[in-house]
Design a protein around this nucleic acid. Structure first.
Lengths: 211, 211
DNA sequence: TATGATTGTGAGTGGAGACTCATGTTGTCA
DNA sequence: TGACAACATGAGTCTCCACTCACAATCATA
């Protein structure tokens, strides 16, 4: 807790590190943008050289900005998670809160079917502290949507958060690996949503009906 | 169970190729067994050397039996698919046909959570002609179970085969990558099964006059 | 503009892993 | 039991890829 309070200690608002030179900043952004596209298409096994080539820089430049391939992947994850969190907030504040959860799941599965990154995000890449915070936010965002959905009666009251997250990850993985088309996505999700909704008369199905 | 008359007349019992020398047959079986365990634990990225070491043979021996790592993987897939198909037949012939589909899905998801091979089988490894036949059988087996389940009223009538297969792959992937424990598996599957069932008043209860 | 610090460059290094092949070993059958 | 084909061996080749570093280019500041 022994921290100085001098304003000179916080040179910037971007997180506590030195400001980048103009060209460096430009390259960094270019690399992230290209990497996002490349990894989205080919998955995390795509080579760093391909990213460098796409960004029009030498491979050394990529490693100057991101000391490790893993670091690059996590930078992308972070951006992706932030965007997802914004989406969640918007849905939570929307005018149809009961449907927000379904909308979000639908959207994520659709993205997963097209971008490997989304799925990677949820499982394959190691999660370190950089990403952990955003992931926690995502969890909380889904929880908020779930709460609203339960309160609105769109989702059964006994559905738990970890079940929803499990379904979300499973559906995303399935959509990606098996290459579901939009129609199949829609129909499959409809079944799952039906399960989440349960019958209109919620009281009847409280417990005991499993198996 | 078609028995041949002369042992000398059957050059092989494995599908139409040359008979193996005793030691070769022994090694081949050993390799498959070890590979199954290794790939189940570490996924298809485990090295061929590890398999060789586990089987107590040199790496050249592995490549003598399976010219390619891919070939080895597919040999395993084939065995796995055959076992799954047997399981399907048993369930289809069982005394609770309506529940057979649910039992099968539950079983597969449980295996997926413990063995990477099952999931690989469904997506990651390339499928060639060797495996394609068994995969088709699997598909048909699930279809048979689905038919029975629909007829028994355990599954809604408008549920299609590709939807069930999509759910199956998604759940398996999810269970593997996110490492669901048995409890979470059960609860998550319960939601999906609920979705497959639809409203209970629609069909089952062994009462007539279903709308 | 001059100067130094920051950044970019890309051939090079090291390691991992699939696959080969010349040589040694073993099962099988006459 | 001898002889040979079938089989096993494992060091070596080849390719790919993450990551490094000595040096060159470029930006920011006086």
């Amino acid at each position: 807790m022994t921290s100085t309070k001098s304003p000179a200690d916080r040179p910037d608002d971007s997180g506590g590190v030195k400001p980048l030179r103009a060209d460096a900043r430009r390259n960094r952004e270019r690399i992230i943008a290209v990497a996002e596209a490349v990894f989205a298409e080919k998955g995390p096994s795509a080579s760093t050289e391909e990213v460098a080539a796409g960004a029009g820089v030498a491979i050394g430049t990529v490693f100057k900005h991101f000391p490790t391939k893993q670091a690059l992947l996590q930078a992308i994850m972070k951006g992706l998670l932030e965007r997802l969190n914004e989406q969640l907030s918007a849905l939570a504040a929307g005018d149809r809160p009961g449907e927000g959860l379904f909308t979000f799941v639908t959207e994520m599965v659709d993205q997963a079917a097209r971008k490997r990154t989304v799925v990677t995000l949820l499982a394959e890449t190691g999660v370190d502290l950089q990403v952990a915070g955003s992931l926690q936010s995502l969890r909380e965002g889904v929880e908020a949507l779930l709460d609203r959905a339960r309160r609105a009666g769109t989702v059964r009251e006994d559905v738990r958060l970890d079940e929803v997250l499990a379904l979300l990850t499973g559906l995303c993985h399935g959509a990606l690996h098996a290459g579901w088309d939009v129609d199949l996505q829609r129909r499959t999700l409809a079944i799952v949503f039906e399960g989440l909704r349960g019958q209109p008369d919620a009281a009847a199905r409280s417990r005991g009906s499993i198996r």
